[in-house]
Design a protein around this nucleic acid. Structure first.
Lengths: 226, 226
DNA sequence: TGATTGTTCTTCGTATACACTTTGTCCCGA
DNA sequence: TCGGGACAAAGTGTATACGAAGAACAATCA
């Protein structure tokens, strides 16, 4: 299946370590590997059907990204986002996404705005259909798209990784807080379209505040094993 | 604190890959490996006197941190910070360090402030002695210390990595812009000591603006080979 | 001159080996 | 019964070797 495609395309041979890393990330975010769970190299190698080397390389990067903690000579365990660090994450994310919104407002082309509006529309439909998984996915896509429009690669990559962690926390908690999000999203896109950086920044902050509050409600329940 | 525990558990045998990573980072920052330079695994392994495996793992992390670019099947080259990304870096750093300054102001203990003051004093002396290397080092230490005082590990680690990159750009450019920095630093520490978050944030922004301007002057000359 | 073909260098993945730590277990003695 | 220490097992850290495949570069030929 995929192999034929990859071979045919030849040039973009995705190294195994990257595939392993991606698989590991999503496995952790999806909760297949729970916080505190021990990840031995052999086991991961077997799970992904590769040898230890690609696994090790993926683990190092996953550590740098904060998804796992590596204890010297004891191996890797899935990191446990404590409720302390959730607040910290949102504090940073707030600043970063506010900046992204401002930059996006200042730089967005008509096409950019159109793509955002399209996402908004799809989000509205999915919400109507009660398709929560799709809503969550569109939510991600929208935020990531804004980061991309900001045109600042540093901002984009940092905020993206932070964003993945937020998703992780959300999944570990339960609900996805679908309903109120989208009204704020519309405000945000409106602001970006207006080209008014201050306004966009304010809209992003409002949205993030609400998201942060919701995250904390989720967090109350506690997640993750020790 | 936690450190004693770690030592007690005997985990102070820092893995080769970490040593390699640290050495690689400093080699790149110090300009021993210039932007665009090709880094073959064998060569690095030989340079550091280790086998290829630790080198590979270090390279992946260095890639994640943005110090090298890895082209599939072609290996690693030292990344080239273009003048576009310098502006981007400062835009992000400004937000992050402003937040750090605010948090530091809100959370700093008397001991924290004392340690900052001590650094300031050492900086003054070093400046007087024209010991530029030491001044640059103290500059880093001060900023890193403020990040640490902010007590937000995400903020701290992200800003730290960004900070390393800024240092890198500075070294590649020439001068270290020693003189005016310290007056701003004093303002910043004063603000932190006052406990006034707004004021601390403003001081950080002022400082960063100046630093950014200086960086751009340096950048004019151009750096990095292709 | 220009395209094609080899050759070589290097990375990528695999496999293997072994030292060393940590951990867990079991047995012994108090 | 409870500790403590010897012992075994598991797993990481590191080195090494090898085959496959891609990329770059030089040589060859039309």
């Amino acid at each position: 299946m995929a192999e034929d495609l990859r071979d045919k395309l030849g040039a973009q041979h995705l190294p195994l370590r990257d595939q392993v890393l991606a698989a590991l990330r999503t496995a952790i975010i999806d909760g297949d590997y729970l916080p505190g769970e021990r990840l031995t190299e052999d086991r991961l190698a077997e799970d992904f059907g590769v040898s230890r080397n690609p696994v090790r390389e993926a683990l190092r990067v996953a550590e740098a990204e904060g998804f796992v903690v590596i204890l010297p000579r004891r191996g890797a365990v899935v990191a446990s986002p404590s409720s302390g660090t959730i607040a910290d994450m949102f504090a940073v994310r707030e600043r970063l996404e506010a900046l992204a919104a401002r930059l996006a407002a200042e730089r967005a082309t008509a096409a950019d705005v159109a793509s955002l509006r399209a996402l908004l529309e799809q989000g509205r439909e999915a919400t109507q259909r009660q398709d929560l998984a799709r809503v969550a996915e569109l939510n991600s896509t929208l935020h990531l798209r804004i980061l991309q429009i900001s045109g600042n690669p540093w901002l984009s990559s940092i905020a993206k990784s932070l964003y993945l962690h937020v998703q992780w926390v959300f999944r570990l908690g339960a609900a996805e807080r679908a309903p109120h999000s989208w009204a704020e999203h519309i405000q945000l896109v409106d602001a970006i379209e207006s080209g008014d950086g201050d306004r966009a920044e304010r809209a992003a902050l409002d949205h993030l505040d609400a998201a942060s509050a919701a995250a904390f409600e989720n967090a109350e329940g506690g997640y993750g094993t020790r």
